[in-house]
Simulated assay, not measured.
Amino acid sequence: MHYSLLDLAPVPEGSSTADALRNSGDLAQHAERWGYHRYWLAEHHNMPGIASAATAVLIGHVAGLTKTMRVGAGGIMLPNHAPLAVAEAFGTLATLYPGRIDLGLGRAPGGDHAVMRALGVHPERSENFPQEVQELQALFGPRIEGRSVRAHPGEATEVPLWILGSSLYGAQVAAALGLPYAFASHFAPAALEQAFEVYRRYFQPSDRMAKPYAMLAINVFAAETEAGARRLRTSMQQAFYRLRTGTPGKLPAPVDDLSSVVPAGAMPALNEALRVTAVGDPGQVETQLCALIEAHRPDEVILTGNIHDHAARLRSFEIAAQAMQRITRAKAA
């Protein structure tokens, strides 16, 4: 089983966007050495704690710092962009780094209504999502004489497309188009089981894929001790709480007592949103990852986790990679 990494390019409190971008490049180089198959970055706007708004630019930076690992978007919010512009950007990336670029597509705006207005996006644009995915497929496809609009670069690059989602809609689109599907279980797991079931049941084989291929997103917070790992996790818990209450900011520093900064009444919803998580020492993380894999039977997992200290984040993903290697060896035995 492949294991991959989703990096939201977090900007910790007390640091700058420049620091975050340097950290992403450093993490990517380590991830390649640790055996991660893909390194994905995601489009978010108007969020001071996330530095990956210009996603294609950052993908090019990471691809240039690595050699063999696949690099891509998890994802590009397609309603924000004309398909031709996406095809040209990712066609350029695929031409510079052949065989290494992925394009995950979502239909959410990646921001609030103010962001949509600033981007010039109409809310109804998302209704055209399946048709625009197919338009992208055509733009990346073989050269067709007489076609009025062609992507240069982009044409004939056959950039692999993924459908992203946190509801049944994305599962249905991915199944109907015969594309791989990645579920956002790391922050919105409510429909996880049903979405995977719908995707697998209704999958239609396509020229690109003969059978369904589902990716499970898992938060990981790993350290030498369980207490240390749980403390690391409090940064993401605080950030998620602030986002849900309309006060997003940079990634908070960890705290010893989460109840001192997050009200008790908010904890049930917070715990549910972030329940697809492995947290603890190396043995605990391996056990929890194995249980999630057994429960949901993904074809691939993508690990994520916003940690305030860069060295601690590196160590967490290293422990997770070692755990995934042991899990894979055990399944192969």
Results as ranks from 00 to 15, higher is better:
270 L>C: 11
51 A>M: 06
50 I>V: 11
71 V>N: 12
252 P>G: 10
156 A>D: 09
8 L>E: 02
281 D>T: 00
291 A>D: 14
156 A>H: 09
210 A>W: 06
284 Q>A: 06
53 A>Y: 10
226 E>I: 00
129 F>N: 12
60 G>R: 07
30 H>K: 14
78 L>P: 00
129 F>M: 07
241 Y>D: 12
155 E>V: 07
263 P>W: 14
63 A>R: 09
228 G>T: 03
332 A>S: 11
11 V>W: 05
184 A>G: 07
310 H>E: 08
188 A>T: 14
281 D>F: 00
63 A>G: 00
145 E>M: 13
197 E>L: 03
240 F>H: 06
187 F>A: 05
173 V>H: 13
276 V>R: 03
60 G>D: 03
165 G>R: 10
296 H>L: 02
161 L>I: 07
147 R>S: 10
104 G>W: 12
4 S>K: 15
312 A>N: 02
3 Y>T: 06
228 G>K: 08
215 M>C: 03
189 P>S: 13
278 A>E: 12
82 A>G: 03
49 G>Y: 11
82 A>H: 11
135 E>K: 01
243 L>W: 12
130 P>D: 10
89 A>H: 14
168 L>Y: 06
258 L>H: 06
115 V>F: 14
267 M>E: 11
40 W>S: 02
254 P>F: 14
226 E>C: 00
184 A>C: 04
56 A>Y: 06
221 F>L: 09
302 I>N: 04
304 T>W: 08
208 R>F: 13
82 A>R: 09
212 P>F: 09
328 T>D: 13
27 L>G: 01
156 A>W: 08
160 P>M: 04
179 L>R: 13
33 R>P: 00
325 Q>F: 09
329 R>I: 01
40 W>N: 02
304 T>N: 08
166 S>I: 02
41 L>M: 02
115 V>H: 15
